[in-house]
Amino acid sequence: MFETLILMLDATMRVSTPLIFAALAGLFSERAGIVDIGLEGKILGSAFAAAAAASVFGSAWIGLCFGIVASICLAMIHGFACITHRGDHIVSGVAINTIVAGLTVTLSMYWFGMGGQTPALVGDARFLDITFPFADAIASVPVIGPIYSNLLSGHNILVYLAFAMVPVTYWVIYKTRFGLRLRAVGENPHAVDTAGISVAFIRYRALIICGILCGLAGAYLSTAHNAGFLKDMSAGKGYMALAALIFGKWRPVPVLLACLLFGFLDAVAVRMQGVEIPGIGQVPVQAIEVLPYVLTVLLLAGFIGKAIGPKAIGRPYVKERA
């Protein structure tokens, strides 16, 4: 039983990692007042760019850089539409998701000709698992052993980075000048403007960070979690991250918990496949899979708590007569 739990938590960490990156990405964007349903597209774009570059250059790190750059470019398109041209944030997000879904397949067919995949990544072209010191030695110690050796040790660097990003995000958002201004822009851009700060510049910077984090999420998918790019491999993770962002009420630590919850549900769903539970029978996998979405809907409807987003979210900033 204990071992099963450790295995499931281990899986939870792996599954949650891209969600954490993407949800934090969304947090930066949405706290600055930009709705981002383009998380999905940025993850997918980065996953492709990272896998393609990693396979060409044979380095996961170079792949990561390409993934991040691709994701930032997409974030800048979103910014150009929403900030500079006061476009609808949702429409822009849908556009980006659609363009990326088509473009990744088109380009990968052109470059690699493998039915929309990239070649399998091997060796340094992937982020490999890191084993902590003494992990093997204490693996047999009861309780602590499995926790240290199996759960904490043995992940790739991006998993640790994702978890490290949570306190970093918290610090940036709540403890720095940039964070203060970013939160202010999402709540009342007029206040920021009259304080002599450029609303657009802050929002663009928030989107750059959003791009970086989505880039990490995408690169994780194709060069760490998997060994290459597959068509539509983001498979709704961007939307689930958005759900986690709402479920965590746009705050870093609750967002982390929401990602872990959603990741755990995924691990449970995999585990429960075909398992008979005494007295209940088989629980359909799909019932567990939809829980994140159902929970988010219930939260939004105010049946379980209340989700109140940043006040100025989704509205273009137009300078008005004071």
Binding site: K175, T176, R177, F178, G179, L180, R181, R183, A184, E187, N188, H190, A191, V192, D193, T194, A195, G196, I197, K311, A322
Partner: peptide, 23 residues
């Protein structure tokens, strides 16, 4: 021109924070 869910202090220093780190 106030950010309503900010504290008085946060509102006052917005734009004149006195350094990259708030502390």
């Amino acid at each position: 021109m106030l950010v309503e869910n900010f504290s008085v202090l946060e509102n006052v220093i917005l734009g004149a924070e006195g350094g990259a780190v708030l502390k």
